[in-house]
Amino acid sequence: MMTTDVESPPRAEAPSDPAGTPVDRPRLEHDLRAARSVFSGGFTVLCALLSLIAAFPLFGVLYMLIERGAARLSWSTLVELPPSAIQTEGGGFGNALAGTVFMVLIAGLIAVPAGVFAAVFLAEFGKDRPLAAAIRFGAKVLTGMPSIIAGIFGYALVVLTTGSFSAYAGGVALSILMLPIVTLTAEQAIRAVPAKMKEAAVGMGATPTQVVWRVTLPTAMPSILTGVMLAVARAAGETAPLLFTAQFTYFALRVDRLENAPSLAVLIYEFSGSPYEHQIALAWSASLVLVLLVLVFNLGGQLLARRNELARTR
């Protein structure tokens, strides 16, 4: 890597100055037996080893997912209804895929506008007021709340009120998980809009609302979208909230009636405990589809974020 002057290795014998006294030459050579070298090398090896141990299961999950999941994957698995226990072949999880998409959509319709509005307040109007700090703190606490609590809340709020499990109750429960993510990322996005752009609009006599709608939000939109995609990725994979609000059904998704609704995540949970090979295989395929769905949104969000960063630094 380094081009060095190999022809002149460190001189072995100490030269002397004209007075004849030996020069005090510092020892600079690598000394592999020095405590410092052993310590440093040992920790590097230990750290690499621990990282390897950590990497093994993480990539093991992905490997097994692809190996087992891809086996049963086909167009018909993506559209057909789940097989009953006695059915030994065919069937799929079309209803669950539709259910997941529908419930995440409902959740997004609730959480995205609410989250962006709250973010506008935090970043533009509330700023450093104690109330804004409290809301920010509340949102952070909500992010860390166990998702099962969101499910129970959805049950108490929607299921008990309407008297039935439903896709809509599922959507409400998921929206509680999405809301703090959208709020916090959108606030960051809005804050990143350069002050000089807003000042230009203010200087032309725009009202605060006009500044937000015509300048701030359009400029921040790509970054807000990143947050939305991350939130969608989180919501799509959640199981616990749906267990209490949508439950599961072998039948097609009905959006015109309040009744149990299917989803990929709950299907995986149901079939994972099944004694029938056929259903277990479908659970793996559904996992692969779910993970792909989640990763696409996650990766999309991250790529978008990186592109924005590049655009901003240019």
């Binding site: 060095t4 190999v6 002149s8 020069v23 020892r27 600079l28 050579e29 690598h30």
Partner: peptide, 20 residues
């Protein structure tokens, strides 16, 4: 390409420890 000699030792020689 070149050299840096500190008290007559080439500090970029492979035997030299940069930390030292």
């Amino acid at each position: 390409e070149g050299h840096v000699r500190f008290q007559d030792q080439d500090i970029y020689h492979p035997r030299i420890d940069p930390v030292a």
